[in-house]
Design a protein around this nucleic acid. Structure first.
Length: 592
DNA sequence: TGGCTGTACTG
DNA sequence: CAGTAC
DNA sequence: GCCA
């Protein structure tokens, strides 16, 4: 009661905890104020003054640090209050005070009010929780019924309902019966260990129909889980089914389900590496990174239709029709808009399309989001390989003017062989380590800007702390090729109709060229597994791809560009060797 | 039952 | 720190 | 969601 107007900052509090605390504060007659600008005491779960200042600033309250005795405003740990309650009396506030300050200005920001922030959190959390619950229920149901049980029952029912499946030599029939039998095998071999299979005569005939562990690729038999240790081509005989897993992973992305993203990425990478058309769900369970859930999805897909071209997974189709997800995906496609922002715009602000974003929120967007919105359409358009090559040639030209002897290579999906690209990743280096000044990237970007090739710099690593060997720039590119007719007849600068492209530049010192090339060639899961591979060996990847063990550089790994005319690929090859990995052509790293 | 690749910029 | 990107 |  003798306290000043108090505001509870919701930062880092769950909505439930926030609400509970508010109720508790009210119950103890703490004078709560609904507007932070009128408060002089803030309760918060924040540990640093810097963060306090930031939190207040986002609420339009500009502060300067001020000594405790004279400060009119202070931020205090929530724990102070809870301790007081526990002690049954008012404890000294000083030990819990994180930040003391004076207010220099209060700005009425057009941005979200604290209340909106709170609402935002609530909605977001609810959404996530709802998703989690839904999936948990679904998963439990899967477990309860059991893949095997379901496969068997469905197989029987289908066979009885439709005599076609019995009379025809349809692949479907074979697969259903194959499923039945091999599920038995899996059950046993999973528990008894790989390769342990029942050899009773009644299985002999059936085993021919479904692929057994002995007929699996070598990496399956060896249970190789990391995609960097096997070949993953771009084309898969199971592409149709894999596409459904992609849909689920996209959903997990939009709901910020990190674990789900990881799990489905692993499964996708495995199936993408699997060279045979899948016959049964039991076959899937043998694959590393795939288990009953993926098998259930496959079974669902397999039994959805006799015609492989028309097969679907009902649960996935529901996702595709979910208008919330469709909307979120659309907003998420804006460069600079991740899952959090997409959810806030869609659920809290109610923006339904990119035009809504422009109309109602333009001023509140970050700079890169504005650029992302501006070129929304262009950035969706795929780029042909020759375009990436042109970009490479132009940049190489400029780089060489700046520094003769510069060498470049296109990485990313271009190097993996994609025919259509979403961006161009260009690596730049020089065989002589003494030649690459820390400012090289900045000067190169400046040069390209002067030339008019670059519209915007989305991000640029400025001159780096000593020891950094690698710098990146993320750019918006537009080829300077004007409308010739207008230029000649009207003598006007024609309208440049060229599509804006995303271009990433990576300048690496020659010592780390091989590593950088690996990193930027991808794909995503491949690189992740590469890091896992190294972590399993006690190796660490430094920021610029320097390989260390206990602070020492790992012996034998030499991914440097050599002066003697050796190229990028050679450098990368030596990294493979040094890490004890078999060389994989870029086209075999298509982990999706 | 815990852990999941790892780093850097921006606001 | 949270969000985003590679 | 899968694995150790």
């Amino acid at each position: 009661s003798h306290l000043s107007p108090t505001f509870l900052l919701p930062t880092r509090l769950t909505p439930a905890a926030h609400a509970a605390l508010l109720a508790q504060l009210a119950a103890h007659n703490v004078p709560l104020t609904p507007t932070p600008s009128t408060a002089s005491l803030f309760l918060a779960d924040i540990n640093t003054p810097t963060r306090c200042r930031f939190e207040l600033r986002t609420r339009g309250i500009m502060t300067e640090p001020e000594p405790l005795l004279t400060a009119p405003l202070r931020v205090v740990k929530v724990a102070w209050f809870t301790e007081c309650v526990k002690a049954g009396r008012v404890l000294p506030i000083e030990p819990w005070t994180v930040y003391t300050a004076t207010v220099c200005a209060v700005v009425v920001t057009p941005g979200p009010s604290p209340e909106r922030v709170r609402v935002k959190e609530t909605v977001r959390e609810k959404e996530r929780k709802r998703e989690r619950e839904r999936e948990k229920v679904q998963a439990e149901e899967e477990q309860r019924r059991g893949v095997m049980e379901r496969a068997r029952r469905d197989g029987v029912r289908n066979a009885e309902e439709d005599s076609r499946w019995r009379s025809e030599r349809s692949e479907y029939k074979r697969s259903v019966y194959g499923t039945r039998v091999t599920d038995e095998i899996i059950k046993l071999s999973k528990s008894a260990g790989r390769g342990a299979r029942p050899s009773t005569p009644e299985y002999e005939e059936e085993r021919i129909k479904a692929r057994g562990i002995d007929e699996m690729p070598e990496w399956v038999r060896r249970n190789v889980k990391l995609s960097c240790c096997r070949s993953t081509p771009a084309d898969s005989p199971n592409a149709d089914f894999i596409a459904h897993l992609h849909t689920i992973r996209d959903h997990r992305t939009l709901t910020s389900d990190e674990v789900g993203i990881r799990a489905y990425s692993t499964a996708i990478a495995t199936l993408q590496a699997y060279p045979y058309p899948l016959i049964s769900s039991s076959e899937i369970v043998l694959l590393p990174g795939c288990n009953v859930k993926i098998a259930a999805l496959f079974h669902s897909w397999l039994s959805s239709h006799t015609d492989p071209k028309l097969r679907t997974v009902p649960d996935v189709e529901k996702l595709k029709l979910n208008e919330n997800l469709v909307g979120l995906a659309m907003l998420h496609r804006i460069w600079g808009v991740g899952p959090e922002t997409a959810r806030e715009w869609w659920f809290v602000r109610g923006w339904r399309n990119v035009d809504d974003v422009v109309e109602y929120g333009w001023k509140g967007l970050t700079r890169v989001q504005q650029i992302g919105v501006k070129y929304y359409d262009d950035f969706q358009k795929p780029m042909m390989r020759w375009e990436a090559e042109r970009i490479r040639d132009i940049i190489t030209h400029h780089a060489t003017l700046l520094l003769p002897g510069t060498t470049t290579i296109l990485a990313g999906s271009y190097r993996r062989g994609s025919t259509s690209l979403t961006d161009a990743d260009l690596l730049i280096s020089h065989p002589d380590p003494t030649q690459l000044a820390p400012s090289f990237l900045e000067r190169l970007v400046a040069s390209l800007e002067t030339e008019g090739c670059i519209n915007y710099t989305l991000r640029l690593d400025r001159t780096a702390p000593p020891g950094r060997t690698l710098q990146t720039a993320m750019l918006v590119w537009q080829e300077q090729q004007y409308d010739d007719v207008r230029l000649r007849t009207l003598r006007l600068p024609g309208r440049n109709a060229n599509v804006r492209r995303r271009v990433d530049l990576v300048v690496t010192r020659p010592e780390t060229a091989g590593m950088a090339l690996m990193r930027w060639t991808g794909g995503g899961t491949w690189v992740r597994d590469l890091k896992t591979w190294c972590a399993e060996r006690g190796w660490r990847v430094g920021a610029e791809g320097v390989w260390e063990r206990d602070g020492e550089r790992v012996g034998g790994i030499d991914g440097g560009l050599r002066r003697e005319g050796e190229g990028w690929e050679e450098a990368e090859r030596r990294v493979f060797v040094g890490m004890g990995l078999e060389w994989r052509a870029p086209g075999e790293r298509c982990t999706g």
